[in-house]
Amino acid sequence: MLDRTSQAAGTIVSTRPTEWPTVILALVIHGGFFALTWWWQSLSPVVAIIVGGWLIAWHGSLQHEVIHGHPTGKQGINDAIGSIPLSLWLPYPIYRESHLEHHRDEYLTDPIEDPESSYFTKAAWEQLGATGRLLARWNTTLFGRLTIGPAVMLLSFLGQEWWLIRTNEPGRRRIWAEHGIGVAALLCWAILVCGVPLWLYLAFIYTGAAMTRLRSYAEHRYADSHEERTAIVENSRLFGLLFLYNNLHVLHHRRPGISWYRLPEVYRKNRETLVQSNGGLVYDGYWDIARRFFLKPHDDPTHPHHS
């Protein structure tokens, strides 16, 4: 029987045993990052960028995992694991707060209530201007999401954060100050100790953001019933591992406390129920998504309830 957990965050299990696969994964990701930055000169720039992007995206998947209460029963330890800022631009406390808001499923895709929505209100759409609307439409295609999508995401996020800092949003300056210390330490290691060029590290970040945008591209789509707004991407072993099986997204929203390495088995046992519950919003791997939406929009960029 698959039922929805009453704790969307999945974070309050003080008796939860340590999940060693996730601990090992964290060691692999962080160890891989330090190995890459130390031996980067032994790789071609293209290989280094692909490996660096994979590690950055994988680390984002790990952060998502610890937000939901893994790998230990003590959230302070989990947060410490997730707070190392490999991507540089996203403070973990901000990600944690906004992602838990995203798990209010009744508001999924709403551009005002859902902080991870890709939709616009009519007023916001009109304020974009002709060039902005052109770029936004491009960003609704998979090609656009992988090329300009990371830049749109980064600039939009940093612009919003700069406004919150300038208006003295409570706690924001402290979060960014603490985040800045971690960023400075990482850059000292990568650039000063290891000699990684800044452009190469930024390429790691952009590539990792593009990989993450692939995962989120078709995760949600507006439907009248909020239970039908979350997709499933099946048959994706490589990207499934990169995304820690968050491609089985409707299961994650229904049971956010399930560990990443248990998701495939639970999904297989409950596939019929899950597919029925989300109205059959299922893709046969990311090639299926590319085939449908590489140069075609995934959806209208304006939200139907804010038009």
Results as ranks from 00 to 15, higher is better:
Ala136Phe: 01
Pro170Val: 00
Arg145Met: 12
Phe143Val: 05
Arg173Gly: 08
Trp199Gln: 06
Asn139Ile: 05
Cys194Glu: 11
Thr212Pro: 15
Arg215His: 14
Ile165Val: 13
Leu128Tyr: 00
Ile232Val: 01
Gly195Ser: 01
Thr140Asp: 06
Leu186Asn: 03
Arg213Asn: 12
His226Arg: 10
Thr147Gln: 03
Ala203Ile: 02
Arg221Phe: 03
Ala185Tyr: 08
Trp189Cys: 08
Ala203Phe: 00
Ser156Asn: 02
Thr212Asp: 15
Ala203Val: 07
Arg145Ile: 05
Arg133Ala: 00
Arg173Met: 10
Gly171Phe: 07
Leu202Lys: 13
Ser225Trp: 08
Glu227Lys: 11
Gly182Met: 11
Thr131Lys: 02
Arg174Lys: 15
Ile232Leu: 04
Arg229Ile: 04
Ile205Phe: 05
Arg145Asp: 08
Ala136Val: 03
Ser225Cys: 15
Trp189Asp: 03
Arg229Thr: 00
Gly149Arg: 05
Arg215Trp: 13
Trp138Ser: 11
Arg145Ala: 09
Ala184Glu: 02
His179Gln: 13
Ala184Tyr: 02
Ile148Gly: 01
Val152Leu: 12
Cys194Ile: 08
Thr230Ile: 05
Ala203Ser: 15
Val193Pro: 01
Arg213Thr: 13
Glu169Cys: 15
Ala185Asp: 09
Ile165Glu: 09
Met153Pro: 07
Val196Asn: 02
Thr141Met: 03
Val196Cys: 04
Glu219Ile: 04
Gly182Tyr: 02
Phe143Gly: 11
Phe157Pro: 07
Arg137Tyr: 04
Thr141His: 00
Phe157Leu: 00
Thr230Val: 07
Pro170Ser: 03
Trp162Phe: 08
Ile181Leu: 15
Ser216Met: 14
Gln160Pro: 03
Tyr217Arg: 12
Leu154Ser: 01
Arg215Met: 15
Arg174His: 12
Ala151Lys: 08
Ala210Arg: 08
Ile232Asn: 01
Trp162Gly: 13
Leu142Arg: 00
Cys188Gln: 12
Gly129Met: 06
Gly180Lys: 12
Ala210Asp: 03
Arg174Phe: 10
Gln160Trp: 06
Ser225Gln: 07
Leu186Val: 04
Arg173Thr: 12
Arg133Pro: 03
Thr230Cys: 01
Glu219Ser: 05
Phe143Pro: 01
Ala203Tyr: 01
Glu126Arg: 07
Tyr201Pro: 00
Ile181Glu: 05
Phe157Tyr: 09
Leu192Met: 15
Ile232Asp: 04
Gly182Cys: 09
Leu214Cys: 02
Tyr206Asn: 13
Val183Ser: 06
Trp199Asn: 08
Gly132Ala: 00
Gly159Val: 10
Leu200Met: 06
Tyr217Gln: 04
Ala231Asn: 10
Arg229Ser: 02
Pro197Val: 02
Asp224Arg: 06
Arg173Cys: 12
Gly159His: 01
Leu198Gln: 04
Ile191Asp: 06
Val193Ile: 11
Asn168Ala: 12
His226Ala: 07
Arg229Trp: 03
Arg174Gln: 13
Phe204His: 08
Arg173His: 12
Ala185Ser: 10
Pro197Tyr: 01
